[in-house]
């Protein structure tokens, strides 16, 4: 749930200025405040990233064996149908989930942006699934999707229809995982939009009301433009989050059928821990890093260009 790279868009506004120029001397001792974090940051994030570059040039396993192979792992990746499929699945999954999360989240926020008790209760309902852990979420949805005695299967049968086997159909497996994910993650975007809606100046609505603008017109002309930045933020957060799809696929389909639901992260996990091909897995990890970095940067620039207007 780290909303991490999300706030990258704000990077543009962030220039560390001296708190009060001249009033303070630059001292090494001041570094003590940032040192504890920097220590962990360097040892647990920066070092592994760079060590990973080096390791990805090796054939290696967990048990000390290692041999330099140059770029072989990357050449292999470029020819690996399963890997390429996994990258494709990851993008497809983002396409399935992110727009839905943003739009449904916005819709819910609009509908529930009021002070009644019912609205408060419903907000609670929609956020509640976010606090469940992935294992529980997948367990619940497996018994919803199961073609034998699953919730949907029973429903289908009650209407005299043949149950659909969502998780063992190559076309439906990833969408089924996407539905599970949307159900699980819808709380966060809704909350972010709610917060943004409460920031919209009341005067704008009052002016719209004076103009006798209808519901849709107000939405289109007042509300949406005011929360543009939040919309971008939500999209960025969700793209980064959904890029990292792992648990749902691992627990619901193991990437099948026919590799149709294997995301990139599951590929890395399997190659590393099942096949012990650590160098190869780390090379795939570098690709993941590259893709996320590109996505984050692209969005940063897009967000920045919008700011210019």
């Amino acid at each position: 749930m780290s909303a991490a790279a999300g706030q990258l868009s704000e990077l543009g506004h962030t220039r560390v200025q001296s708190a009060r120029a001249g009033a303070q001397q630059s001292r090494w001792s001041h570094m003590l405040y940032v040192a504890p974090f920097l220590f962990l940051y360097v040892t647990l994030l920066v070092y592994p990233l760079f060590a990973g570059f080096w390791l990805s040039l090796h054939k290696a396993d967990f048990f000390g064996g290692s041999r330099f192979v140059g770029l072989e792992n990357f050449v292999r990746l470029s020819n690996d149908k399963v890997f390429i499929g996994a990258v494709g699945n990851t993008f497809y999954f983002i396409l399935l989930t992110v727009p839905a999360l943003a739009i449904i989240g916005l819709g819910l926020a609009l509908a529930l942006n009021r002070t009644t008790r019912t609205a408060a209760f419903l907000r609670g309902v929609f956020f509640s699934s976010s606090v469940l852990s992935v294992t529980i979420v997948t367990l619940l949805w497996k018994v919803v999707f199961a073609p034998d005695g699953g919730f949907l299967a029973n429903l289908f049968e009650a209407f005299g229809k043949q149950p659909v086997a969502f998780l063992s159909d190559a076309d439906l497996a990833l969408p089924a995982i996407a539905i599970t994910t949307i159900w699980w993650c819808i709380g966060l975007p809704m909350m972010l939009f709610l917060a943004a809606l409460q920031q919209v100046p009341r005067e704008l609505y009052e002016a719209a009301a004076l103009d006798n603008a209808g519901r849709w017109k107000t939405l289109w002309n007042v509300t949406l433009p005011s929360i543009r930045r939040t919309f971008a933020l939500v999209v960025i957060i969700e793209v980064v989050l959904q890029f990292q799809l792992f648990g749902q696929a691992y627990l619901m389909t193991q990437g099948g059928p026919n590799n149709a639901s294997r995301p990139l992260v599951l590929f890395i996990f399997e190659v590393g821990f099942t096949r012990w091909d650590v160098g190869y897995a780390v090379a795939a990890g570098q690709i993941l890093f590259g893709l996320i970095a590109i996505a984050a940067m692209a969005q940063y620039f897009v967000a920045r260009r919008k700011e210019a207007f």
Binding site: A19, L38, L49, G52, I268, V278, A281, V282
Partner: peptide, 30 residues
């Protein structure tokens, strides 16, 4: 970062921000 001056502060802060783009899974094996 917000209030104190120390050598290399701005550079370090930017380097920390870059970390936002490193996904956990890319470094997990190492």
């Amino acid at each position: 970062f917000a209030r104190l001056e120390f050598p290399g502060r701005n550079v370090i802060f930017v380097l920390v921000l870059f970390g936002l783009a490193i996904p956990e899974q890319a470094v997990i094996l190492v």
